[in-house]
Design a binder for these strands. Structure first.
Lengths: 343, 343
DNA sequence: GTTAGCACTCTTTGTTATTGAGTGCTAATT
DNA sequence: AATTAGCACTCAATAACAAAGAGTGCTAAC
């Protein structure tokens, strides 16, 4: 539906605007190497592209600026593959070069490096813990009324939670229960724990444990898992450098959105496997009107366990960020798979 | 050295400027109830106060603005005690009303509420974990090479750390060691652990444990505690609302300073017990030139375990913030003392 | 179909004038 | 001797205006 020339013009305009953040005029376009026709021709084409909704003007006699539809088309059809610099690749690899085994640390460092490489904001979700398998359950009494329940998963993740013990329950009973549970439940994915307890272990417990009713309550209480995975941020304030956010009000709503973790979580959680680009209002959040979000998933083996996202202005270096995320999510996945899959 | 009238004028100017953020002129001052003398008199006094370094002008014919020295004097000598509104007190109490026992949650919620009450930024440091006493040490093997070391303290705090196990070491040996250690070390403050191990337990271990040298290495590795206490933030973006930070560059340096936790930590860590006010450059950090930091300590029993701080513009509501912090640190201390001291 | 040419639009920048809140100083008043 | 009224002066902020420049759309020529 678009002619080759229109595509070329659209692409060059968007490339130029991404670089300069300034509306692009016909005259400056006509000077580019790729462009062999006159500014008048470009003007005509630009008018057509505007009618079609790919470009916009900031005022009647201004140069053109890509619309959301324009970016969408650009991302879907015009993206020229970006070759990463050696330096970039090395930095990415450096995250995985050190012998860090703690998953959270890897993830946190990832967020930091990615935000430095892009000068946008990085958000990493997960790795999810619900699919992890139980390695050890421990209940450590602190005093008469309280105890700490600790869950260790096969990925080395530790969850802990303070619980209250009703006075009727004997500490020894709890210890007994914990022993039984460890025997029965090791290797069971955390999501299935409660279910499995009711189906298979409850019977066993009822035979060996005195105040069964009370104890089972504590158990369920301590297995109640964190509602959602952890999020890690990098470069939260990077958006302040972007010229489109030189307005205090915009930056305030954006930053407080970023800090309001729940909303961010909802946004990332539903992102599917693979790399995806959401442009401006496609994100359904008014604070993100001028932002794009690129998400990539990472996995252990075949199973998706988390999401990496880069938040930038709609005027984002899509090509570069996609290449980086692609490299990164693959490397992260393979490291995690190597570390945590075969046990 | 200052006359009563000068003190009055200084106080009224600072109060007014804190409220309005606008330079205060002689005419508007003369209209205040407290002021019974003419604008000309005020002008003369203001000139004197400026000569003494308590006031400044933004330009030759502008009204006066407090200098850092002015704020200092105001905080030290002129602060009128602020009576908190019922509503404020209720909000503070609400943090402690719920039956939350997890220390970190209490602290986190505190940061949030305080930032909402003040519309400044809240930073909470601690509670320190080094003085806590060991309740349980646990090492959970994940696979041949790695294991998770878990430390539970008497305050219910859980630290965990991934460690690598050299191939020469038998998992059973580790288990044996952990049992010995739990017998010997429960109740010992975390800071003293390593010391105590070398002094008293090493001998015991060397008798019972085969590959003693290797095992002790793992042990020390797993007891290496986090270099410093955790920090919690509230209202990180609140400073964006302050008119003195309507400048993008200022806000950027400030926010990135806040996000750079190390620097913040250094700032808070050395703050002594009680409530203290650091004004502007007294903080020794250029990004905080226009900021004041009010710190308060909180404690378990008699022992200081952490710091609450409020970061605001130098044009801060000192009186109100001090009252809030005072109330807060006392309440927090008494709750913590009740929960964690008597065991 | 393309492009040169031109009138027109709108932002940006700079200049100038005006206003108003404020000061400092002097002289009059208490 | 301290206070205050009065006045000349300063400076930021605002508005009004002009000029420049980058851009457009349209028409007519190529």
């Amino acid at each position: 539906m678009l002619t080759d020339r229109q595509l070329l013009i659209l692409q060059v305009i968007i490339d130029d605007f991404i670089r300069s953040a300034q509306p692009v005029g016909s005259r400056s376009l006509s000077k580019k190497e790729e462009i062999t026709f006159s500014s008048a021709t470009i003007r005509n084409e630009m008018a057509d592209l505007e009618d079609l909704g790919f470009l916009e003007k900031t005022h009647t006699s201004s140069g053109r600026v890509p619309s959301e539809k324009g970016y969408r088309y650009y991302v879907d059809h015009l993206l020229s593959p970006h070759t990463l610099k050696m330096h970039d690749i090395e930095l990415v690899k450096s995250v995985f070069a050190e012998k860090i085994y703690e998953l959270e640390k890897i993830v946190q460092k990832s967020a930091k490096i990615l935000s430095e490489l892009t000068s946008y904001t990085t958000i990493v979700l997960g790795p999810g813990v619900l699919e992890n398998k139980l390695r050890r359950l421990q209940i450590v009494p602190l005093n008469k009324e309280t105890a700490i329940a600790i869950i260790v998963t096969d990925t080395g993740h530790v969850e802990n939670k303070m619980i209250t013990i009703p006075p009727s329950v004997d500490v020894n009973e709890i210890e007994k229960m914990v022993n039984i549970l460890n025997e029965q439940l090791i290797g069971v994915p955390l999501v299935e724990l409660t279910d499995k307890i009711y189906r298979e272990v409850a019977f066993l417990l009822s035979r060996h444990i005195k105040s069964y009713d009370e104890v089972i309550k504590i158990l369920v209480q301590s297995l109640k898992l964190p509602g959602h995975e952890k999020m890690f941020f990098g470069g939260k304030t990077n958006m302040l450098q972007q010229p489109e956010f030189h307005d205090i009000d915009k930056i305030r709503t954006l930053l407080s959105m970023i800090d309001h973790e729940k909303g961010m979580f909802d946004l990332l959680e539903k992102s599917p496997a693979g790399i995806h680009v959401k442009i401006g209002r496609e994100n359904q959040i008014s604070a993100m009107e001028n932002c794009s979000l690129i998400t990539a998933s990472y996995s252990i083996g075949e199973e998706k366990v988390g999401t990496i996202a880069i938040l930038g202005p709609t005027r984002m270096q899509y090509s570069r960020v996609i290449s980086l995320l692609d490299l990164f999510s693959h490397d992260l996945s393979s490291v995690l798979t190597r570390l945590y899959q075969n046990k």
